[in-house]
Computed example of a mutant assay.
Amino acid sequence: MITRKRMLAALAAIAVAAPLAACGSDETTTADEGASLDAATLVMYSGRGEGLVGDLIPTLEDLADVSIDVRYGSTSELAAQILEEGDRSPADIFFAQDAGALGAVASAGLLAPLDAETLDLVPDAYQASDGTWVATSGRARVIVHDTEAVDAAEVPDTIDAVVDPRWRGKVGFAPTNASWQAFVTALRVSRGEDGAREWLEAFRDNEPVRYDNNVAVLNAVEEGQVELGLINHYYWYRLARDTGAENMRSAVNYLAPGDEGALVNIAGAGILVSSDQQEAAERVIRAMLSVDAQQYFLDETAEYPVVPALEVDEEGRPQLDELQGPDIDLSELESLEQTQQLLTEVGLL
């Protein structure tokens, strides 16, 4: 195992360093050029909260030989800001919580194509079809339930079962969360606008309980405020690691294969076309896919690593390639604005 880890670390170092080697030989690299690379400062717009990824930033800086100025915010707000700023954006890198926001920025022509060597580090399913963004970690939508109020056999395994009158006023969700909105976008892609509206209206009429974020949804289930919660898997696993699953009131449930509620989404990153530090930004993206960074996502955020070399080890938790979400290309989740408009129209935003 030690030998394997050392080998992986070496490969990761090579992957991060590869763009530098590709730029020219030692004979064509001057001392001034080397100094400018070391001094590079990049601006990252991060839709991932500081509490989740703040401790990772120094590792990325070390691996990529850059300084990173991180500006945190919600993924949807930062995407809208980039769209408004256009080619005047000060951002070099957009680190987003979901594929939809990355797709929206890419479809506006504001993300640059990534190097093939970078894209080759992850499976095709977890990168943009046009090569403008790449996944950095994966996550699944799940349902958590209150074990003191609901038997495991009763927990819905489809989103259509969630709108059964049995669950009226007993389901928590986070309407402004990017992952919830990505799920709704997947619903629109899968069922069309009319089908998505029909489900959302039924969900609304079943009186779901709104919370600010996934943490609040999970806490509400833990405290018995609601019986079911719609969240991303890693919130439950992080709490289980901190407190012990045996001490938790909630339990996690994966939805039926192919159901829209079982969407396997990603966090990911892309480089702004307007950035004047494309090479340095590419090194940061590669650093995000290094073994060190991927191990961070696995250990600290309880997300799925997207490089094939690493796997999860919690008992009962499926591997990333075992998850069976809906048959949707993540690049199709770009219509964030239309999703938000629909949610507003039905009164769920």
Rank of each mutant, 00 (worst) to 15 (best):
D151E: 11
L239V: 10
A128L: 01
G172K: 04
W167P: 03
A161T: 10
T147F: 03
D242W: 11
D164R: 05
V209H: 06
Y126G: 00
V221G: 12
E223Y: 02
R204I: 11
Q225H: 12
R166V: 14
L230F: 15
D242N: 11
R141D: 09
A178I: 07
G229Q: 10
L200D: 02
L187A: 10
L239T: 06
T136P: 02
N214L: 09
N177H: 15
R210D: 15
R166T: 15
E223R: 13
G138H: 03
W236Q: 06
A161G: 06
V171A: 11
D212C: 03
S137E: 03
N219H: 11
P175F: 09
Y211A: 09
E222H: 04
A149N: 04
A220M: 03
R204F: 04
R241A: 14
N232V: 12
R241W: 04
R168L: 09
F183M: 15
N213G: 12
D205P: 07
E201R: 11
I159E: 09
Y234W: 14
R188F: 03
Y235E: 14
D146C: 07
R197T: 08
I231R: 14
R197F: 04
T185G: 15
G172I: 07
T158W: 01
V142T: 10
A240T: 12
E222R: 08
Y235P: 01
A128I: 00
A182P: 01
V215W: 08
A220V: 05
W236H: 14
R141W: 07
R166Y: 09
R210W: 07
D160M: 09
E154L: 12
V134E: 00
W167Y: 05
R210T: 15
T158F: 00
D205H: 03
V215Q: 12
D157V: 15
F183I: 12
H233I: 06
S190P: 02
F203I: 08
H233S: 13
N232A: 13
P208A: 07
F173T: 10
E222F: 03
A220D: 05
E154T: 11
R210N: 13
N232L: 11
A202C: 04
V134W: 00
K170E: 15
S179T: 15
V144F: 02
L200V: 01
A128N: 10
L239H: 05
R141S: 11
A128M: 01
Y211P: 03
V217H: 08
P208Y: 05
A220Y: 05
L218T: 08
V142Y: 00
R210K: 13
R238Y: 09
